[in-house]
């Protein structure tokens, strides 16, 4: 055995590139990974071709044990790009990993044909190839996960921005419709936005509507009281509205003291109180003319 398994593989990749590519594409098609609804087949061909080219040039260095080594840099970069794209296109992580794993069969077939007479070398080669392709496959999964996590993080931030609108109902009357579960990060943002809006609009009355808050626990109640207190310090009255029957019961069961705050069942009731505080009245046109 004059040739080692590593140089054999590099040699084989060099010689049979076209055939390997053709077999790989057939394999990909058979595994059902060709998702024509998500990406064009020319794009897939392009990616396979590119991968094979880079894999070949990396294989020239005959270092198959560690894909984190610098000679695998361009392969990793390519896989990072492919994986990230696919995460956004809506592929699953196994579909992305199968892209690499499906390359095993054509490569094994080729090895079997080449080294039919040298069993030891064949087994050794297959092991080397499996090792490197597994590592690359895991790499794609890792990148895929990171890309997904980035998407989730961005969505969280967007949600945070979306979920804290402060609405001006009338001259001097603000409303804060709160939607969704309150956690400490969100409550901080809500509180700051509200107080900032109070300063900017010079409002005297604020209605905090908690219709969209699914549960009220001690933490949420404490936060509500804090907001009311802070608003009061700035010279603004607070009304809490949208307390559903279950929530009212929870508040009583928890023994929370909201007695210092004006509370109302609906936003409409709270608005009526706010108008009264501002010494405004709404009169029906019909009753006026009669």
């Amino acid at each position: 055995m004059s040739l080692s398994s590593t140089s054999k593989i590099a040699d084989l990749l060099e010689k049979n590139e076209t055939e390997l590519l053709r077999n790989w594409l057939t394999e990909l098609e058979a595994s059902g990974l060709r998702r024509d609804d998500l990406m064009r087949s020319t794009e897939l061909n392009q990616q396979c071709h590119e991968f094979l080219r880079m894999f070949r040039s990396a294989a020239q260095h005959e270092n198959f044990s560690d894909v984190q080594a610098p000679e695998w840099g361009s392969v990793r970069q390519l896989l990072t790009d492919i994986s990230r794209d696919r995460a956004q296109q809506g592929f699953t992580s196994s579909e992305v990993a199968t892209f690499i794993f499906s390359f095993k069969k054509p490569l094994f077939d080729q090895l079997k044909r080449e080294l039919a007479q040298q069993n030891d070398l064949l087994v050794e080669s297959i092991w080397t190839v499996t090792d490197v392709l597994d590592q690359l496959g895991l790499w794609t999964t890792e990148v895929f996960q990171q890309a997904r996590e980035k998407v989730i993080l961005r969505q969280q931030q967007e949600l945070l921005e979306l979920s804290t609108p402060v609405v001006k109902l009338w001259e001097g009357i603000l409303a804060l419709p709160m939607i969704g579960t309150l956690d400490s990060a969100r409550t901080q943002v809500v509180m700051e936005t509200l107080l900032q809006q109070i300063v900017e609009t010079g409002s005297q009355v604020v209605i905090i509507d908690i219709t969209g808050v699914p549960t009220v626990d001690t933490l949420v109640a404490q936060y509500l009281l804090k907001t009311v207190e802070a608003a009061r310090l700035m010279g603004t009255d607070c009304i809490i509205s949208g307390i559903r029957p279950q929530i009212a019961q929870t508040i009583v069961h928890l023994g929370l003291d909201l007695s210092g705050v004006i509370t109302k069942a609906t936003l409409a009731d709270a608005f009526a109180i706010a108008l009264k505080k501002r010494q405004l009245t709404i009169v029906s046109k019909a009753s006026q003319s009669v």
Partner: peptide, 21 residues
């Protein structure tokens, strides 16, 4: 706002003191 938040967090809500904008 920053002062109001700080005072509330410090537990000094100045109850009994009148405030205006």
């Amino acid at each position: 706002p920053a002062i109001a938040i700080t005072l509330v967090e410090l537990g000094l809500s100045l109850s009994g003191v009148r405030t205006a904008a």
